[in-house]
Design a protein around this nucleic acid. Sequence first.
DNA 1: GACTTATATAAGTTCACTCTTACATAATGG
DNA 2: CCATTATGTAAGAGTGAACTTATATAAGTC
Lengths: 131, 131
Amino acid sequence: MKAFEVLGDPVRRRILELLADSEQPVGAVAEVLRAEFGISQPGVSQHLRVLRESGFATARADGTRRLYAIEPSALQEVDVWLDQFRRFWNQRLDALTTELVRGQLERHLKQTPSSVAANGSNTNREEQNDS
Amino acid sequence: MKAFEVLGDPVRRRILELLADSEQPVGAVAEVLRAEFGISQPGVSQHLRVLRESGFATARADGTRRLYAIEPSALQEVDVWLDQFRRFWNQRLDALTTELVRGQLERHLKQTPSSVAANGSNTNREEQNDS
DNA sequence: GACTTATATAAGTTCACTCTTACATAATGG
DNA sequence: CCATTATGTAAGAGTGAACTTATATAAGTC
């Protein structure tokens, strides 16, 4: 699990956030990081290398530029590791996330109405005990 | 987001895994870590302090011992950060806490079969894409 | 109170990581 | 080709984090 070591660096996390919007050339990323962290272009290149080699990002050539993009697999590993702890906040929907989740659920059900059919009413009513 | 820096250390991740089973006294944790990482008791205490101070664990006194337990909030922060990337491996449910919704949905459908009525077959079959 | 067990803190060392500057490589356009 | 733009690599410096050993604290035991 090298993934967490890679994400330990705030600059690299920021890079991933930038790539999440869409693939980006090194220059664009470097510009942002110079503004936000005061870091040089070679510094950025080094971080991008780490992200590439650890499976967090991929690069493709585009003329003289290289476009970097998110590679989900490594991030998903992190997600999987978190699974063993989800039960600590998952058992019951707590006050914080209930509404969000509920909205999510409704939207989801709306997207695939066939799967739930008739009753759009008391879909997830069993977990409002302490919220 | 100090959380990722804290999780960057494999020893600390292992400690959290150990605490996930149940709360543990320092001694028990230290024993495992000495076996697995060759690390001393003070080393373990230092890591536990980091986990405490960063909100990943709590400690309560029990006679001469201190029992450490998981504190979910910090881990949940990590989960939330991951949200912005989930769409890369969850085409359908993209936003917050997909797993939560998923588990919730499954439990719900199981608990209230009447709500899905006729089609008990492909109830939530649409999200087995890449797993 | 003295002894033991359990854990925390102090001080110091070591080492890996993240920078920087300088340079290399590669594609494009005149 | 030569210059320019875009990016990658090299080498070295500085810093901080994670250990170690030694010691402090604190609670149970006799």
